[in-house]
Amino acid sequence: MILNDTSSLLTHLRTRRSGRPRDLIEPGPDAAQLRDIVTMAARVPDHGKLGPWRFVAVPTGARGAFAALLRDAYLVDKPDAGRVELEAVDAFARQAPALVVVLSRPRAESHIPVWEQELSVGAAAMNLLHAAHALGFAGGWVTGWAAYSDRVRDAFGGAGERIAGFVFIGTPRAALEERPRPDIDQLLSVWTG
Rank of each mutant, 00 (worst) to 15 (best):
V89G: 13
P45G: 05
N127D: 09
H12S: 15
F66P: 00
V38L: 10
S7H: 14
A159F: 07
I112N: 13
L24H: 03
T143M: 14
D80E: 12
W53R: 05
W115S: 08
P106A: 12
W145L: 11
E178G: 14
A68P: 10
A73Q: 04
W191M: 02
F166E: 00
L129K: 10
D23C: 07
A67C: 12
V58S: 08
I37G: 14
F55M: 05
A93C: 07
A138Q: 09
S104P: 02
F166Q: 00
F137L: 13
V102H: 09
A132G: 09
P21I: 03
A91K: 13
A68F: 10
G48S: 02
A98W: 01
R105W: 08
I163R: 06
D30L: 11
A31H: 05
M40D: 05
D80W: 04
G160T: 09
T11C: 12
P52N: 06
Q186Y: 11
R173W: 05
S7Q: 14
A68S: 14
A132T: 06
R173K: 10
R162W: 01
L3D: 05
V56L: 06
D77T: 13
R151Q: 08
A31S: 07
P21M: 07
T15R: 15
D23F: 11
A134L: 06
R181L: 05
V76D: 14
S110R: 08
R22P: 01
F55S: 08
A31M: 12
L135R: 14
P59L: 02
A73F: 06
L3S: 06
G19P: 02
D46H: 08
G144D: 06
R14S: 08
A146V: 00
G48V: 02
S8I: 12
A147N: 12
D154R: 07
E116M: 10
L24P: 02
F168T: 07
S149P: 05
W115D: 07
